[in-house]
């Protein structure tokens, strides 16, 4: 098991994610500079949260052209491993067309940082396997552009294939369609989530639900 946390110019949750994988879970983990393209060594590649390229133009719009993101389609197609995008990483994956839909400005037009409740919609995936179906968990969000949107036929497909993994429970903080907070691709190899699991991976910060997400990912691969 070997993981990589990609470092884009402007990533700011890279060390946090690295800390959880390396120091809390003991996984061999590298911080991977955005110019790297040799990805086959890794079983898990995480695109962390932050403001890659300052989120200029649109969150993730410039990062999708980074060499490491350009190398992802082949990595995925060859089945080398799993890709997880957290927050800005999720935005990059949708911009790059590796996940369907788009993430747009919060309906409040403001950045929002708080802990939210989420419901597990599918627990038969690496990301969610350590939770019960329909379990309510808590994770923090911190984003200005987290409102998930997609055309009706895409939503239909997401539902049919059970690609919606987490939905906001109780309160929808950003106006996402169908309360969507996390999805995966059809094959279950690419994951995107707006909440930050690395921010609730220790009892010190809450329930530790985030650690179960990493544990699930690492366990299976």
């Amino acid at each position: 098991m070997r993981a990589a946390v990609v470092v884009f110019p402007g990533s700011n949750c890279d060390y946090d994610t690295y800390y959880v994988l390396k120091d809390l879970l003991g996984v061999e983990t590298d911080l991977l500079w955005y110019r790297e393209t040799a990805l086959h060594r890794y079983d898990l590649i995480v695109l962390p949260g932050g403001f890659s390229y300052g989120d200029y133009l649109r969150a993730g719009a410039i990062a999708r052209f980074a060499p490491v993101v350009q190398a992802l389609p082949e990595y995925i197609a060859r089945g080398h491993g799993i890709v997880l995008g957290i927050c800005n990483g999720f935005q990059i994956l949708t911009e790059a067309g590796l996940l369907p839909g788009a993430l747009t400005k919060n309906i409040s037009q403001r950045f929002i940082c708080k802990t939210v409740k989420l419901r597990v919609e599918n627990n038969a995936t690496p990301l969610t396997q350590l939770f019960r179906y329909e379990e309510i968990i808590e994770l923090p969000i911190a984003h200005g552009e987290g409102r998930y949107i997609a055309p009706p036929e895409t939503l239909e497909r997401l539902k049919r294939n059970r690609q919606i993994l987490l939905t906001y429970h109780g309160e929808n903080p950003n106006g996402s369609v169908e309360n969507i907070a996390a999805i995966m691709n059809e094959k279950g190899t690419v994951f995107g989530m707006m909440p930050h699991p690395e921010r609730n991976s220790e009892q010190l910060f809450g329930t530790g639900a985030g650690l179960k997400i990493f544990r699930g990912l690492v366990h299976l691969v």
């Binding site: 700011n12 949750c13 060390y15 946090d16 800390y19 959880v20 120091d23 949260g49 403001r110 950045f111 929002i112 940082c113 708080k114 923090p140 911190a142 930050h196 690395e198 921010r199 991976s201 220790e202 010190l204 910060f205």
Partner: peptide
């Protein structure tokens, strides 16, 4: 105000804004 600020990045904020008289940050 403080929900518009990222008060958790760097994952050290044990006691954050609005929760107490002072904020508490762990040192990893």
């Amino acid at each position: 105000v403080w929900e518009q600020y990222d008060h958790m990045v760097q994952i050290n904020t044990v006691i954050g804004p609005g929760a107490h008289d002072a904020a508490v940050l762990r040192v990893k």
